[in-house]
Design a protein around this nucleic acid. Structure first.
Lengths: 182, 182
DNA sequence: CGCTTAATGCAACTCCAATTGCGTTAGAAT
DNA sequence: ATTCTAACGCAATTGGAGTTGCATTAAGCG
């Protein structure tokens, strides 16, 4: 039997323009209207793009929001390399706090939470991968990725979702201190 | 001037029946369809109630879901009184874990997360009140309600939302141990 | 450059969520 | 029992989300 070669994706040019316009429009509107008052046609109009294009690319609104929420923090961005696990985690936590103090990112996170629950659609999976990388880089520490998630990521995310006004400047440092005190 | 007496609310009889039927229908359907595939007319039909009644009571679907998510754990239920803060928190945490291992409650939590972000619509405000009550009952401890939220409630809620399959039997006890180790 | 077809645009259509006005029922108070 | 009116049911309507078929554009590639 003949092997079917995958059709060539077209990622550049106009497609890239549409992608960027849709992402920008979604980020703008999610801040203005909030996650639940958002619709696909609204995004399409703001992006000067046809609604059909959005439906065909993402299927529905929750998938779009989850997609943007997942990749807004670039997975290829440089991560802290301070020489110590504590230093790395402190810098990393500060970055995450700063990220979610942006109302746009907090709203996207809530959208991601709304559609979470299965292994595929976890908009925070990159955080877990990064946590694992940090603890494996410093095997002398006894910290596990699980504990980093539970006592560093979880409190930040919890506050970002439910108590965003409590995400202040020293949240990250306080949590890191408490994590290493145990 | 004459003081306007508030119009008498009608909480019993038919109204109570409608309320109960709507809550039951929502809980059933949110498990079957998930939070984002849910609509008001669907709930109305399942509850044998007119959609108009739901719209007039709650306004929209997010408000309804948030309302149910907030009061599903009865605020008047008995809380642990073991004599020690650690014992109280352990029992309390176990109850919360058990609660969110129920897929219905996890789905409701995700719905509550979707509409969170301001001081009024926090479906977890009762947990914070309970945590405050526990630490105030045992002033000899140095634990603050904030730390209980950060290192006990937040990890449970985070897992319930994003990693529900990791909420196993000893999650609560492990978190309590880690909380008191620091 | 020219070919192929992926991706978008456009328009018409369907379907259902959400609104509104009005009549009916029944909870609460006296 | 009677009154008042909150809460519900019903029906008609509207508005927009989402779908589909076809034409158009342009990205990828030899």
């Amino acid at each position: 039997m003949e092997t079917k070669t995958a059709p060539a994706k077209r990622t550049g040019g106009r497609s890239a323009l549409v992608l960027g316009a849709v992402k920008r429009a979604t980020e703008e509107l999610i801040e203005e209207k909030g996650q639940e008052r958002l619709t696909v046609p609204m995004i399409a109009e703001r992006a000067s793009v046809n609604p059909t294009s959005i439906y065909r690319r993402w299927g529905d609104l929750p998938s779009l929001i989850n997609d943007i929420a997942t990749y807004r923090l670039d997975p290829a961005r440089p991560l802290p390399e301070s020489g110590t696990l504590r230093g790395d985690l402190a810098g990393w936590a500060q970055e995450i706090v700063a990220h979610y103090r942006n109302p746009v990112n907090a709203a996207l996170l809530r959208g991601g939470a709304a559609v979470a629950g299965d292994r595929e659609s976890d908009c925070l999976r990159n955080r877990r991968a990064e946590a694992t990388m940090f603890v494996e880089r410093h095997p002398e520490s006894e910290l596990s990725a699980d504990r980093v998630i539970d006592h560093l990521v979880a409190p930040i995310v919890y506050r970002a979702i439910f108590l965003p006004w409590t995400l202040d400047d020293d949240t990250a440092n306080r949590l890191v201190t408490e994590l290493f005190a145990s």
